[in-house]
Computed example of a mutant assay.
Amino acid sequence: MHGTTWPAIAHETLEWRSRYDTDGLSRRQRVDAALRSYDAAVPPVIAELRHAPPAALASELEEAAAEASRFDVEMGIELAPYLGILLRSESAASSTIENLTASARAVAAAEVGIDSRGNGGIIAANVQAMRRALEVDGPVDAPAIRQMHAALMVGDRWHEPGQWRAEPVWIGGSSISPCGATYVAPRHDRVPELIDDLVRFLATPDVSVLQQAALGHAQFETIHPFTDGNGRTGRALVHAHLRATGLVRQVALPVSAGLLASGRAYVDALTAYRAGDPDPVLRLFAEATLRAATEGRRLGHEVRDIRATWSAIVTARPQSRTWDLLDLLVRQPVVTAATLQTELGLAPGHVRRHVDPLLELGILKEQRVHRVRGTYWRAPEILTALDDFAARSGRRLPLR
């Protein structure tokens, strides 16, 4: 089917059978559990759909795609040793959209095994999911999506990482019943076919990459193929597609930071998409991409300047591994002795030889953690730059 219209989702009425013992429920919850039917979404297949946005919006999308490409080239040249800093920032912003927040220090500490409890550990898992997205070789397919989700949800006791859901999921309303929910995702047995259709859409050569990424993301969130982690996986999918199509080859463009700044507009755009109007989500992605390039450059330049300052005050000999440690701290601003042994090949007895001079210069700060009977070191300037980036990303733009 070709044309400029985009169909709204349909609905089907399904029977609800509560899994809950009503004895321990409140009166309101017992009413919810007693409801017997609900309307689930039936999304259209989109592989053959084409949409022609208004000329002004089409121009915005072209400009945003060109800016993403420029950003990739510039940052790939300027920040080649430090690309992980953008990846971590994007992962944190994607998690913040889901109201999962943690300091850069907590996330970095979780990454090196200091403390993986709480949101720091969840966001650290999101960093791994983003890495999986950037490792996708060739067009995105269903196994790649499941691998991203598995990385995101690793160790989760309540959900099945990397497995399509086998139960209803919904947004809004009661926590114990989909009846009366704001949105109920399609019946679980529709998921594999809908994902295959989405994959075919992402592989079509006659749709612009950024339009594919935006509409593909909206369709993924409409399908909601997992019991949890759909938003973060869906944004990782955007990165996988940008990388697989070659629009962004070297860096993680912090698109989620741009979406985060849009506030309620993100939810409203997804709602409009489901009602048959894809233009709000296209406009949102164009604006988010442009903002991502602006904020990503700012963070990149801040990190570059911090690293240059370190080089000016460190007096190690030219071949010293201390220089490698400085580069590592930009990518991983919290380290342990085990980190330095693994990443830099330092012998256990040589770790302090490289750490102590950086402590004296204030580049590193030492932290003892009793419960793990160990010590870790943090680079406060890098962590502050990351937290500042997160704060800027969280500033809401005026809704239009």
Rank of each mutant, 00 (worst) to 15 (best):
L242N: 00
Q219T: 05
E295V: 08
D327C: 09
R297G: 04
T375M: 10
T13P: 09
I171R: 11
L134N: 15
Y82C: 09
V330H: 01
S256A: 12
L259P: 04
D156L: 07
L242A: 01
S320A: 05
P7H: 02
W16I: 01
L242C: 04
D388R: 15
Y82H: 15
L326D: 07
I223S: 00
Y266A: 02
R232M: 14
P44I: 00
R378G: 00
A312T: 08
A106I: 00
A142K: 08
V199G: 07
W16F: 15
Q341L: 01
D115P: 00
R307A: 14
S116H: 05
T182H: 11
A265M: 10
P398D: 11
R297E: 11
Y20N: 05
I306K: 01
E221S: 06
T22G: 05
F71L: 08
Q319R: 12
A391Y: 09
E381F: 06
G118K: 07
R274Y: 02
F201L: 08
L215S: 04
Q29F: 09
P43D: 02
I145A: 11
A108L: 06
G121F: 03
A257V: 04
F285V: 10
H301D: 13
A240M: 08
L290I: 04
A240L: 12
R36L: 09
G231F: 06
D388P: 12
L247V: 07
V127W: 03
D115I: 00
V112S: 03
L358V: 10
R28E: 15
H224L: 00
A236V: 10
G216T: 01
R373E: 13
S320K: 02
V207P: 00
Q29K: 10
R36W: 01
R307E: 11
A40N: 06
A213E: 05
P318N: 03
L49S: 00
M75K: 11
A257D: 06
A185L: 03
R378F: 07
A292K: 05
P178W: 01
I363S: 03
L253K: 13
R200S: 14
T339K: 04
P53Q: 06
S103R: 07
F285E: 05
C179I: 00
G173A: 07
